[in-house]
Design a protein around this nucleic acid. Sequence first.
DNA 1: GTCTATATAGGGATAGAC
DNA 2: GTCTATCCCTATATAGAC
Lengths: 214, 214
Amino acid sequence: MKTRDRILVTSLELFNLCGEPNVTTIDIANEMDISPGNLYYHFRNKDEIISELFQAFEENMLDVLQSPTDPGLDMMDYWMYVHMIFERMWDYRFLYRDPVTILERNEKLQRKFNRILDKKQDAALSIIQVMEGQSLISISREEAERLSTNIALTATYWLNFQHIRHMGSNSEPDDLEAGVYQVISHIAPYLPPEGRELLDAVADTYLGASSSGG
Amino acid sequence: MKTRDRILVTSLELFNLCGEPNVTTIDIANEMDISPGNLYYHFRNKDEIISELFQAFEENMLDVLQSPTDPGLDMMDYWMYVHMIFERMWDYRFLYRDPVTILERNEKLQRKFNRILDKKQDAALSIIQVMEGQSLISISREEAERLSTNIALTATYWLNFQHIRHMGSNSEPDDLEAGVYQVISHIAPYLPPEGRELLDAVADTYLGASSSGG
DNA sequence: GTCTATATAGGGATAGAC
DNA sequence: GTCTATCCCTATATAGAC
């Protein structure tokens, strides 16, 4: 593995573990047993490392987000879909730890992050509309807008919320299923009784057997 | 006004405007036309300023949060209630801009912040249970738990979400009503048609006439 | 490509005069 | 209480040898 790539991998690891603002270029170099000078031979500055990591994240995420408007999907498919999104966020969770701190330094990242948010919200809206089209749920246009905003918001901030909630204990929870459930539960009240039971069944399947993010 | 208090007021202003990590003790001193030495005569360090601001925030917030379990309350009362909570958060919005960065340095603040989150969630749950008791809504115990978590999460991160969403334009939106609506809309799908119409009416009243936070 | 050594800059904080 | 001057530390980033 080339040094340049090792820098990216090590940076991502440390950023996720300690938070990007708490990781210096020297920390990264030390962790890899190379000199800081060497690191700066491969990257002009820390921002370039972050940008490159973000680039990889964006490609991953936009790929996963391709909204499943296929009408043949069931509750379990949606669960898996949201799970995949959570896994990508988990892989790059340093971005969700204090997004404002990271984004405010770099306008390009702001735009990219917002584009991902747009996509998230669009995906939620699409799914809602498919369900509506199937008469699975009944919802007005305005309600659907607000609902998809709430879904995108929960999906975006769940890891941050969990992190703050577990700050006393120094172990970070790597159980994404609770977040998936939390996101999907936004839809629950719109579902008919059969739909809710189906959701409960799917939740029971996944909530016990924590599969973790690795 | 005593210098000590002026330091607190100025710090709060700058923190809210620029974000706490971007404001140095020198910035604060400059803004007040005093010397950094003077500032350090009144406060041992920056953390002490933050802690004291947090203290004031906590008292405000816990006071406002006293959950209104009075069964005589209507939709407009709940709207006002959530609005008051948003106003307190707005006054100390720097805490919601980079929560992890601010909290990770100080265990006491972690506990306090989480206590406020607990209170928020409890308040949401209480209101839901009152509504359930009045047969206004029908909801299971587990659903109520998840719902109140989602409500607390949205209330906590709405300002952050808005901030990121408007990062391109350099004007920060000070319209809290959208956030209030977003929070209350979590309840909407559980309401009977009359309840939803009532909510729409209340929303119409407030959403137009942005009252702002100042 | 990699190293050592170092420049640079900024922020937190203190000392001591007034 | 307030000021000026300054110290210390840390993080980013560069220079130049190997």
